[in-house]
Write a protein that binds this DNA or RNA. Structure first.
Lengths: 261, 261
DNA sequence: CGCCGCTCCGAACACTGTACGGAGACCGAA
DNA sequence: TTCGGTCTCCGTACAGTGTTCGGAGCGGCG
């Protein structure tokens, strides 16, 4: 009875009104294209909005067409994560062993802040980072690691120490950003602003912490200034704390070496 | 024609052969029961094996019965996560301000190791921790935080500093454990042992790091001793690094206070 | 007795990821 | 030119998924 909408043909496809597939100038779909479209979808509508069908539709393609360019949804997500890390500017690596610690410290701080920012900018990453264990062998992440190690090594650490230091800084960064992003996207999902949510939730939390005096004090006195802007500086001072530790143990170790020699 | 298997009745249910619902001695299903069953399923078969139907089946119940005790799958997962953190022994809080730093340091180390261990013991947590931002208001986590803060505060930090210190340690712990667990469960999903996977994958990775000299060196020389046992000590030394930083800035700050007074 | 509230659940809905087979387009060889 | 092969795209189909809804059986209360 009714013709399909948007079709312009009668119900039964005849010889004359056949779909007329698009001419193939060039493959029309590419892995890069797919990944960037996926990224756009993820950023705008979040992780649970990404389905192969919706993604296909965005590219004017069928869902199953994607599978000629990407093995899996999982692989697609891994590619997306790597793509995100590609945004990061690499730390500059101009430090030399004699330098003021400030030089490499600020470089490391900047790097950590960059990773955190990238995660907060794409909050869906936290629901994905646990599933794609192989990201750490992706090209973008490798580039970043290499630059990071270069920075630390040219500042005087040997490779093993540099690796350890990187592990600590990156570990902290990922953990802190994960916690923050989880919190933020929990808020976003419920469609609240951080401020007003706090106003509504805090009383309940405070009530629930009757027998946790320290948490109670924390929430009643601290939290107002910890919101939003406070998170940035809190993160940064965490990094600085870690850098203090690294610097101290580094100093101790190189003193040990020279003292022994 | 064929009667349903296991049914013992003919095809059409008559007055006599009616299902005979189980008598209701007591509600037969409870939130706790559901959560523990979910935990068992998650631990044995991983995150993607948990579906409401399978979980129901394990409890000799229909899938939809679960919804009278739990609002969502998401809420169920949040409960499971909280349940897992309930496993943790709380740190002992017997430190006093004058004590040898070793006292609170080892307590903090133990606490961090506990959190990490719990995550590694339930690797599915990492695919879930990013989605349930509210865990940090769950009772178990609150208990843990309170104990942690108590420990630090009775050791001489004021609450704000204690909170910052806790943030750093916990952040690092979650991040490091996330990375480890993601890696481990990526291995597990492919059904390989860590050792043999390394043997197969490493050459490829080393090959892929031709233009990343530091990563190259790292993988060719370091990795063998970083496997398995090495990860524990690597994590611990990371925590120690952080504690160095905390202790230093703590000393500096209290010196500042007494000097000023 | 009727009525309410609670628990359990079968059926159904709207979607999901992905395997498969086929259709058309391109290209190089015969 | 024609033929075969390869590559890309995709309609269909399958085996699930989370969740809603209406109803059924039950216990207890009036």
């Amino acid at each position: 009875m009714a013709a399909k909408p948007e079709d312009g043909t009668s119900g039964i496809p005849t010889l004359w009104t056949r779909p007329q597939r698009p001419r193939r100038e060039q493959p029309a779909l590419s892995r890069e294209q797919i990944v960037t479209a996926a990224l756009a979808l993820l950023d705008s509508d979040g992780i649970e909005a990404l389905s192969m069908r919706k993604l296909g539709a965005r590219l004017n393609a069928g869902a199953t067409s994607l599978y000629t360019h990407v093995a899996n949804k999982e692989e697609l997500l891994a590619l997306a994560v790597d793509q995100v890390f590609a945004e990061l500017p690499l730390p500059e690596t101009t430090a030399t062993p004699g330098d003021d610690p400030k030089v490499w410290r600020t470089a490391v701080e900047g790097c950590a802040e960059g990773v955190r920012a990238v995660i907060l900018r794409h909050p869906w990453m936290v629901s994905v980072i646990g599933d794609v264990g192989m990201v750490y062998f992706g090209p973008s992440w490798m580039r970043l690691s290499e630059a990071f190690l270069t920075l630390l090594e040219t500042s005087g650490l040997d490779l093993a120490d540099a690796n350890e230091a990187m592990g600590v800084v990156i570990g902290y960064t990922i953990g802190a950003a994960t916690v923050e992003a989880a919190w933020l996207s929990a808020l976003a999902k419920r469609g609240r602003e951080e401020q007003e949510w706090m106003e509504q939730l805090l009383p309940a939390v405070v009530e629930a912490t009757k027998e946790h005096p320290r948490l109670h004090r924390l929430y009643t006195t601290q939290v107002d200034q910890e919101i939003a802007a406070g998170r940035d500086t809190a993160f940064l001072s965490g990094v600085r704390l870690i850098l203090d530790g690294i610097e101290a143990s580094w100093a101790a170790r190189s003193a040990d070496r020279t003292g022994r020699a």
